[in-house]
Design a protein around this nucleic acid. Structure first.
Lengths: 226, 226
DNA sequence: ACCTGAACACCGTTCAAGT
DNA sequence: ACCTGAACACCGTTCAAGT
C-alpha cells in the first residue's frame, strides 16, 4: 500500500543509498523536522530500528543527506579572471537555490562544519574564483567561511518562512503591516524607513548582501594574521 | 513585583516573569535543547502543565526569553557622526556577546522574525547609527536585516561548537588537522590556503566580517527599489 | 549479516479533577 | 483562578530474538 512511484521498485532492498534517498524524499515532503527515523523507515516500508544498520544516528543521516544535496550544486565554469565576480555571485546563488529545494537542510551545515566531499568541492571552487580575482589568500580564507555562513542562514530562514506560512509566527503581509505601523515616538528611525524595510524579495536582498560582501572584500584591509 | 532572583526563595510563586527567568537559567545550564517544558517546570518545583497558564507554547516561551536577552544588550552612546562606524561595530559585537551568554538563544531570531520591543530598540539604534554615517535609506533598511541574520548565525554556530566540544562532531583541533591534510590533488585551492583557513579566533573573524559588510555598504550601489 | 518488535527514557500538549 | 497528575501521541536509540 505504501508506494511512492518515482524510482523505487515496489520492494526496494535496504541500502545506504536507499536510506539517504528516502530521507531526502521525506525532507522535501515534510521539511527537516519531519525527517524522523520513523518517517524515513516508513518510506522504506520498515521499522526505525532497521535504519541503524546504515546510519549511526539521525545526526549522521542528516549530514549524509546534506552532502548528497551539496552534490547537486551547479559549479558553473572554471574560473575566468575577466568575470570572476559574476561567477562568485552565480555560484553562491546556485548553492542557495539548491538548498531551497530541500527546505531546512541548511540547518545541517549551520549545526556542524560540513566535511563531506561535495561541500569541499564547492569551497575549492569558490576559493579558485576569488584567487582568480586577485583576492589575497587571507581574505579569501576567511571569506569562504563568512559567506557560507550567510548563505546557510539565508536558506534556513527561508525554509522557516515557507514552512509556517500562516499557522504560526507571522506572514510576510503581517510583518509588513507590523513594521509600517511601529510607534514613531519610540522607534523613530524604523518608522522613517517605512516600507523600505520590507521592500524587495528574498532574491534581491540576497544579491545585495553578496554585493556588499564582495565589494567589502575589495576595499577592506586583509585580516591581520601571521 | 518584579523580584529578580539570583537566589530564588525556596518556593517562589509562579508568574510570567518567574517562568521566563527559570527558562533562562535552564538555558545557561543546559543549552537551548535542554530548555524543555519539563526542565523549566522542575526548576520551579512544579509540573510542565503548570507553565501553560503563563505561556502558550514552548515556542512562545523561547520568543519571550529571547526578548529578555535582547534587553541586556548594551546600546552604547547615541549616534555620533564622527565615529559611527566604530559604533556600528561595537553595537553588533555587544549583540553577539550578549547572545553568547545564552548559548543557542540565537536559534530563536533565526527561526522567526523577532517582534519583541527590545529587539526593535536595537534595530532602531542601528539604523540611527547608519543614517548618522550618511548611509542611504534603502541600503540601511536592507543592511539591518542582513547583518542581524549574520550575527544570529554566528552566535548560533558558536553555541553548537561550545556545546558538543568533543562528544560529537569535530573539535577545533580536529578540524584544523582535517583542513590542513586535505588531498591537494582533488582540492588544490583549499590545500594552498593551508593553515589560513583555520587561523584566528571567532572574534577576529567576526570583526573582519563586519568590516567587509560596512565597507561594502560604502562602496556598493544602493538596492534598486522604488 | 541483516532485519524486527518491543521496550526505554524521553518530548509537547491537553484535560479532567482538584484547590 | 490557578495548579496538577495522568494520559496521549509522539521522539531517538537499544537490544534480544528472529531469519
Amino acid at each position: 500500500m505504501r508506494d511512492t512511484p518515482r524510482t523505487r521498485p515496489a520492494k526496494a532492498a535496504l541500502s545506504y543509498d536507499a536510506v539517504i534517498d528516502a530521507g531526502l524524499r521525506v525532507l522535501q515532503e515534510r521539511g527537516i523536522e519531519g525527517v524522523t527515523m520513523r518517517a524515513v523507515a516508513q518510506e522504506l516500508d520498515t521499522g526505525a530500528a532497521s535504519l541503524y544498520v546504515y546510519v549511526a544516528s539521525r545526526r549522521e543521516l542528516l549530514n549524509q543527506m546534506f552532502d548528497q544535496v551539496a552534490g547537486e550544486v551547479d559549479l558553473g565554469d572554471e574560473a575566468d579572471p575577466a568575470r570572476w565576480r559574476e561567477q562568485v555571485e552565480q555560484l553562491l546563488i546556485s548553492v542557495l537555490e539548491t538548498m531551497n529545494r530541500y527546505p531546512g537542510i541548511a540547518r545541517v551545515p549551520l549545526a556542524n562544519v560540513p566535511q563531506g566531499t561535495n561541500a569541499l568541492v564547492i569551497a575549492d571552487r569558490l576559493i579558485s574564483l576569488l584567487r582568480a580575482g586577485g583576492v589575497d589568500a587571507r581574505s579569501a580564507a576567511w571569506f569562504v567561511d563568512i559567506v557560507f555562513l550567510f548563505v546557510n542562514a539565508t536558506a534556513y530562514e527561508t525554509a522557516i518562512y515557507v514552512r509556517d506560512g500562516s499557522d504560526s509566527g507571522a506572514t510576510a503581509a503581517e510583518l509588513e503591516a507590523y513594521f509600517n505601523h511601529v510607534d514613531p515616538g519610540r522607534y523613530p528611525h524604523i518608522a522613517s524607513l517605512g516600507p523600505l524595510l520590507t521592500a524587495g524579495d528574498g532574491d534581491q536582498r540576497f544579491r545585495f548582501a553578496l554585493r556588499l560582501m564582495i565589494e567589502g572584500l575589495l576595499h577592506a584591509t586583509p585580516p591581520d594574521i601571521p
